[in-house]
Design a binder for these strands. Structure first.
Lengths: 306, 306
DNA sequence: TCATAACTTCATTTTTTATGATGTTATGTC
DNA sequence: GACATAACATCATAAAAAATGAAGTTATGA
């Protein structure tokens, strides 16, 4: 790595123009700087690359011409890299890798992603559905540009913006006695058959909530996907406690379910957008802005129960 | 051209290893130099490219990984250039462009070129038959690596090695009265019909020689190719004065011709190998060596008449 | 002959890069 | 839980590289 790309560029510039001084003027440096670069390149390759004509200019030799082609190629590659780097930052294009832990994400991510990819040709998004831990690990080791996750046990080095705070709600079969209530409290669920979501963050969270009922919980089923829990409730297997609400009023099985807010002292879950801080790519910024705007709009209120 | 390829290389090295200190050890520099390069690259692209873990190492971000691929490509291109440059100098391969002004060149160039291309795969030679001026101009402006020409009016900047000195000889039809002589002098040709070679260097040269005959020359024909002159002589059109001799004893027309040395004060023509000085490519050096060896061997004596 | 336009050389200044010392942060061992 | 270790961070300083500017040299052309 003895010779700099700058010297190669100076050499090329002078060889192309057949003049050290013309090149120097074009490069905004003094001629001796260019002359120096030429000598440097010749010394590096140990070849005579230009013939000098004291008062007339210079002329590349046959070997010089052969090298010019190769150097021109390298310099173009360099310029391309710089351009691509600038684009990575400034252009709304390229791929954005997003990892998410948000069981109802299909209810809102399309609304955020849709306009972005529609308005900006060249933009592509990769979504990976993972658990809360994997999302954070993936962000930290460069698998994702951005993660959507729950702000519990946030790792050092991850910054985040809150998208929405989702308080727990009771999910009930439509014909359940409590379904017509405007609001319930945890003790109301005492003795009810419960179907719980069993995922890394959620199980701790729901256990804490269940403790408020005051008696041993009657957990009849757990499931690792949100929709399975919902469909269980729809089929009358039991009631559930969840935080975010899909927009569809019926389950996959076609049953209607009802969400009723829970009055509780247990804190809401915070759905956040995590990133690494520092200068973000423009595409990342655009996605972040779109997500924040979405969750700031009334549309997003349909995702929670209050 | 703000960021050097060295910094990019340092960045890449560290990002690939996930460690600044490991990279520094591999690059034989101090870790802070590598840390500096990373900051430089991040500043240049205005992007966060690596996540730093104080006591553990570093981890490229998604944007960092995207750039690593591009930088790796550039660094490889750079290494390739350096290698190609080294090869251009050291390897016996590539193309050598040769310009020549030597009417009997077909009699000896194949003997020089043949072994070279046979023994070294990857070597190719381009021969251009041009006049003495064009050969020199072509060397000076990089069209040829090497020229074979006559050392008359040699331009500044061209160095040369003498291959052979060719004294003038008389070319006679086989049945000419002078053909049996061991040696002639210019006055012997007085009154003879003459066929002369008319080319930039040669016409001046032969005029000077003809002046020695002492009387007005009887020039019955001139031609711009050596073989045309020879064939004219073979057909009995007249005698000629030439310097170099093809190995074939007969002309294209099938006639036998005889060469008889001329005792004269006019200096022989010097056939030389011209180049630009400075560090030559190895292929150029190899060709030069082969040419010098050939003209040093007894074979070459058959090309002149003494 | 002289002015001009190029290249060369070289001492000096400026900028960039590398070093080395010191501090901080996590890991793992006793 | 103290301590050794292995990383990265920071920063002043040293070393190296690049750029400048001032002569000097060599052709060209008026």
């Amino acid at each position: 790595m003895r010779i700099s790309i700058k010297s190669l560029h100076y050499f090329l510039s002078a060889a192309e123009r057949g003049s050290i001084s013309k090149a120097a003027a074009a490069l905004n440096v003094v001629p001796s700087a260019v002359a120096n670069a030429i000598e440097q390149v010749e010394a590096e390759f140990e070849l005579k690359l230009v013939q000098r004509y004291p008062a007339k200019g210079i002329q590349p030799t046959a070997a010089g011409k052969a090298l010019m082609r190769k150097i021109r190629h390298l310099v173009e590659e360099y310029d391309t890299l710089m351009l691509e780097g600038a684009e990575l930052r400034t252009a709304l294009s390229g791929n954005l890798a997003i990892g998410y832990y948000a069981p109802v994400a299909p209810a809102f991510l399309p609304a955020i992603a849709g306009p972005l990819v529609r308005d900006h040709p060249g933009v592509s998004l990769s979504f990976a559905e993972v658990d809360n831990e994997r999302a954070q690990i993936g962000l930290l080791n460069g698998d994702y540009d951005l993660i959507l996750f729950v702000a519990e046990n946030v790792r050092a080095g991850i910054s985040y913006e809150t998208l929405i705070e989702a308080p727990p709600y009771a999910l009930l079969p439509q014909d359940h006695p409590l379904a017509s209530r405007a609001c319930v409290e945890m003790p109301d669920l005492q003795g009810e058959a419960l179907v719980l979501l069993d995922l890394p963050v959620t199980n701790e969270y729901y256990r804490g909530l269940i403790d408020e009922t005051g008696a041993a919980a009657n957990i009849v089923a757990t499931a690792s996907t949100h929709e399975m829990v919902r469909s269980m409730v729809g089929a009358g297997v039991g009631c559930s406690v969840l935080n975010m609400l899909p927009l569809a009023p019926v389950t996959y099985a076609g049953d209607a379910v009802t969400a009723v807010p829970i009055r509780s002292s247990v804190k809401p879950l915070k759905l956040v957008l995590g990133h690494l801080g520092g200068k973000p790519r423009r595409l990342l910024q655009a996605f972040t802005d779109a997500a924040l705007a979405y969750f700031d709009s009334p549309d997003a209120q349909a995702l929670i129960v209050r």
